[in-house]
Design a binder for these strands. Sequence first.
DNA 1: GTCCATGTTCTTTA
DNA 2: CTAAAGAACATGGA
Length: 306
Amino acid sequence: MTGYTLYNIGNPSDARYSPKLPGHCKPSKYMPELPEVETVVRTLCPLLVGKRISGVRLERSDILTPTGTDLAGHLLLRTVADISRRGKRIVITLDDGNRFYVHLGMTGRLTFETCDRPIEKHTHLILEVREKEVESAVPFQVRFRDPRRFGGVWWLGRDLSPDDGMGPEPLSLRVSRLKRQLATTGRSIKTALLDQTLIAGLGNIYVDESLFAARIHPLVPANRLTDLQIATLNRAIKGILRKAINHRGSTLRDYRDANGESGGFQLRHKVYDRAGKPCRLCKGEIQRIILGGRSTHYCPNCQAEI
DNA sequence: GTCCATGTTCTTTA
DNA sequence: CTAAAGAACATGGA
């Protein structure tokens, strides 16, 4: 049985596939915004859909909401029918119609691995999956690991919806809807775009990049944008997200997705994490300010104040 | 020891 | 009352 190469789970010569040695485990910085979550969903989909869940290990019960849900009872011997994304949520649908979602928070990872790989610290949930119809099929594991535990697993069942509390999806957002959403608040456009109830999926990186692409200053009140600015912003958000997804997300340091591949969009960041560096358009100096408690990067020259 | 970090939610303030 | 600002959550890297 050649399960390793069959499922293309990564290059065995990659450091990730060697046993971890003390001091040899490099730190990784994971950036789970919409493009990274989309990349995880796309890589997991062909590996997981159609497989049967043959084992469930919840190492930390407090990452599960509602606490005390009988996850093993619900998942064991069920088949994964679908994996999709809603905002930053990874939604998994079972063959009996029950659903749950995983949120990666700041440091969460959802990976597909062989069972013999060492289990890293802060691994909170392990699902063992096998090919459905094959007798004695090689088992694999889906592991949820999250050092800071801002992420977790939410059980939805058949009645709750992953749309709950989520604004519209930016990739299919009409200008009229964006205008209606932004009209509801006088907060800065930067803060408004981070609000998942107004628009789903954007995080600190892609808000900064989108505002730069639209040449809008982050401090402009959301409800004071002109119609032209809103139309430009809508196009900018879609363009930035599409490009980031095409590059499999943004990787700083040595992040790899579930297939062992890194993202590449960080090389195309125009403002994020570039404070003090020259603007790629005008050569002016990229500024960094704190807005809503988060670092915010922009070019004062390209992004005019109001 | 210090400061900083991708996200969300609860609490405090205006 | 509501909207907005701020703190909190937990861990690890620089």
